Amino acid sequence: MKRLIAAFLATALGLSAAHGQTGQDAAEMARAAARDLAASIGALQEAANDRDRVAALTRTIRSYEDGLVAVREGLRRLSLREAAIREDWETQRDSVARLVAVMTTMENNSGPMLLLHPTGPVGTARSGIILSDVAPALQAEAETLRRDLEEVAGLRRLQESLAITLEEGLHATQEARTALAQAISERRDLPQKFAERPDELRLIVQSIDTLDSFSDLLSDTQIGPQDLPLPFSAREGDLPLPVNGPILRGFNEPDAAGTSRPGILIAAPAGGLVTAPAPATIRYMGPLLDYGNVMILEPEGGYFLVLAGMDVLYGELGQVVPEGSPLGLMPGSAISAAEFVAEAQAGAEPDGSETLYVEIRRLNRPTDPAVWFAQTGE
């Protein structure tokens, strides 16, 4: 009997200790994510007054989007921690109930009978030892339950705080995107290389039937940026992704309909900001075939970077944009803070309904973009 009680206590206290460590990790991660997100919100509000508003707003919007990824993971871990505590309660409830039942049975017996044992004085002594162990054990279990209840309350407060921070961030980001669009329209500091005229390009677009043929026509003239510290051709495996999100489909990987394209597909947040992975000249921007809105960049003579699927496009034809420069916004509107929290707590992945298609062409031949980006390179 004593060994059974000791085993029960060791198991219960061991579970509580393990869960406590996990809980501390989850709460600290969520707090760190909240601090980073709050800092990015403050930076968003300050960036509108920065001397270089375009760069400042772009940097802080991307920082906020990065913060959302961390907050999503933090909320998921908090939810898992709370579920683990509740599961621990359910597991220990039956064991505690059985111990309480034994104690209740013993209390129903008269006092003198409790001091005696059928096996004699040795049995009576053993019973006394067991009884002396039971009361502290139940007290320890009650203390563990109290700590768990306090932790659950703390987790709930942390989740509510994150929801408030998210709500503030949504408003600040919307204002920052509006300010970014205005700042881009007023920007006059970027070099301009004159290539095809927009009306001539529109006629070309109407006459072509493949992206290959269009990029072949653009290849007749090379106007990529010159005198870069590091040419684009030397940056394989080093480029940042143009948008925050995981890779949904790889190079030449067929989709559900069996159609394959020589590029990668990135899941993007609704309204997410798309930025230039490298300095480049804008060779084309606008609708193209069935790709939707397309931006074709020339980062170096002989190379084209094709980005398709944006809703809003920034820039002008022939403009030379620096690395990290905003190129456009993805379609859709950001979900509310409540919806974000609910999805994160359920462990759901981001919607991913908005996707950015990316191609990299070398001498007008598609090459696997995954090996060019640092996050996906091998």
Results as ranks from 00 to 15, higher is better:
residue 62 R to P: 02
residue 323 E to G: 03
residue 349 E to V: 07
residue 199 D to Y: 08
residue 114 L to A: 06
residue 102 V to T: 11
residue 171 H to K: 15
residue 281 T to F: 02
residue 300 E to Y: 01
residue 356 L to H: 00
residue 6 A to I: 12
residue 249 R to Q: 11
residue 247 I to N: 04
residue 232 F to I: 02
residue 222 Q to D: 07
residue 325 S to Y: 12
residue 182 Q to W: 07
residue 239 L to E: 01
residue 6 A to V: 13
residue 33 A to V: 05
residue 366 P to V: 03
residue 133 D to I: 11
residue 207 S to G: 06
residue 332 G to N: 03
residue 147 R to S: 10
residue 297 L to Y: 00
residue 51 R to N: 14
residue 40 S to V: 05
residue 23 G to Q: 03
residue 273 L to W: 01
residue 159 Q to G: 15
residue 269 P to V: 06
residue 13 L to F: 12
residue 7 A to V: 15
residue 168 E to Y: 13
residue 15 L to Q: 13
residue 170 L to C: 07
residue 252 N to F: 10
residue 330 M to C: 12
residue 29 M to V: 07
residue 135 A to M: 13
residue 357 Y to W: 15
residue 7 A to F: 14
residue 45 Q to P: 03
residue 211 L to I: 11
residue 2 K to H: 13
residue 121 P to R: 10
residue 288 L to G: 03
residue 186 E to F: 08
residue 196 E to R: 12
residue 311 D to C: 08
residue 329 L to K: 01
residue 143 E to L: 15
residue 80 L to F: 07
residue 244 N to G: 06
residue 77 R to D: 15
residue 329 L to V: 06
residue 53 R to F: 05
residue 101 A to Q: 12
residue 20 G to P: 03
residue 268 A to K: 01
residue 156 R to E: 15
residue 101 A to H: 10
residue 48 A to M: 13
residue 280 A to C: 09
residue 225 P to A: 09
residue 272 G to R: 00
residue 295 M to A: 09
residue 27 A to S: 15
residue 12 A to H: 07
residue 134 V to A: 13
residue 113 M to D: 10
residue 289 L to R: 12
residue 309 G to V: 01
residue 42 G to R: 06
residue 224 G to K: 01
residue 71 V to S: 08
residue 338 A to S: 11
residue 196 E to F: 14
residue 315 G to I: 01
residue 251 F to W: 06
residue 32 A to Y: 12
residue 183 A to T: 02
residue 14 G to V: 13
residue 110 S to K: 05
residue 47 A to E: 00
residue 1 M to D: 08
residue 129 I to E: 14
residue 183 A to S: 14
residue 309 G to Y: 00
residue 244 N to S: 10
residue 238 D to L: 05
residue 319 Q to V: 04
residue 197 R to A: 11
residue 318 G to P: 04
residue 150 E to H: 10
residue 181 A to L: 09
residue 121 P to G: 05
residue 103 M to G: 08
residue 151 E to Q: 11
residue 343 E to Y: 12
residue 14 G to P: 05
residue 326 P to Y: 01
residue 203 L to G: 07
residue 268 A to N: 02
residue 372 W to G: 00
residue 85 I to R: 04
residue 13 L to Q: 15
residue 281 T to N: 05
residue 48 A to L: 14
residue 272 G to D: 01
residue 318 G to V: 05
residue 137 A to Y: 02
residue 203 L to E: 07
residue 169 G to W: 00
residue 110 S to V: 08
residue 15 L to G: 11
residue 15 L to K: 11
residue 201 L to Q: 08
residue 196 E to K: 08
residue 22 T to M: 09
residue 95 S to N: 09
